[in-house]
C-alpha cells in the first residue's frame, strides 16, 4: 500500500469513528445514520464533492446491519444531499450544505423557539425578560 493510500485509510477510519450512535435511542437506527452524516456535512467535515464513508465501513465499524445503513444513505440520496457514483461510492452534492442550513432554519422556529417560549411561560419568565436573556446569550 502506498503512503498516500494508507493516509486515506487512516482519515477514513478517523472520520467514521467520529460518528456516534445511540443504540438505545427510540429513534430508528437508519435515521440516526442519516442524521450523523447530515451533521457531518453541516459541520463541514464533508464538503461538496467529498466522498463519505461507505455503507460497508459504517456497517463494519459500528456493527450495524448493512441494510439499515443503506436505508439511511438512501434517505439522504432522496433528499438530494448525497449522490451515488456507480462503482465508486457516495459523494456530497454541491449544494448539500446550503440545503441543510435552510432546513435547519425552518426547523429553528418550530422546534426551538416554540419550545423556548413554552418553557419560559412555565417558569414565569416574561417576554421582556426572555428577550434580555437572549441578548445576554448573544453577548457571550
Amino acid at each position: 500500500m502506498t503512503k498516500l493510500a494508507m493516509l486515506n485509510v487512516a482519515i477514513d477510519n478517523y472520520e467514521v469513528s467520529r460518528m456516534q450512535f445511540n443504540f438505545n435511542s427510540s429513534e430508528p437506527l437508519y435515521m440516526q445514520v442519516a442524521d450523523q452524516i447530515r451533521e457531518a456535512i453541516f459541520t463541514r467535515i464533508y464538503v461538496a464533492g467529498d466522498q463519505i464513508p461507505s455503507t460497508t465501513e459504517i456497517s463494519r465499524n459500528y456493527h450495524i446491519n448493512p441494510a439499515t445503513v443503506l436505508k439511511g444513505m438512501n434517505m439522504l440520496v432522496s433528499q438530494n444531499l448525497i449522490e451515488k457514483k456507480r462503482g465508486i461510492g457516495m459523494f456530497v452534492v454541491y449544494d448539500a450544505y446550503q440545503k441543510i442550513v435552510d432546513q435547519r432554519r425552518n426547523e429553528f422556529y418550530q422546534q426551538r423557539v416554540i419550545e423556548l417560549v413554552k418553557e419560559a411561560r412555565r417558569l414565569n419568565i416574561s417576554e421582556d425578560e426572555l428577550v434580555k436573556l437572549i441578548e445576554r446569550g448573544f453577548g457571550q
Binding site: 460497508t56 456497517s59 463494519r60 456493527h63 450495524i64 446491519n65 448493512p66
Partner: peptide, 13 residues
C-alpha cells in the same frame, strides 16, 4: 464480543 460482532458483520458484507 465486540470483535465477534465486527467479524460477523464484515464476513456478512
Amino acid at each position: 464480543r465486540d470483535l465477534l460482532y465486527q467479524s460477523l458483520s464484515t464476513s456478512y458484507i
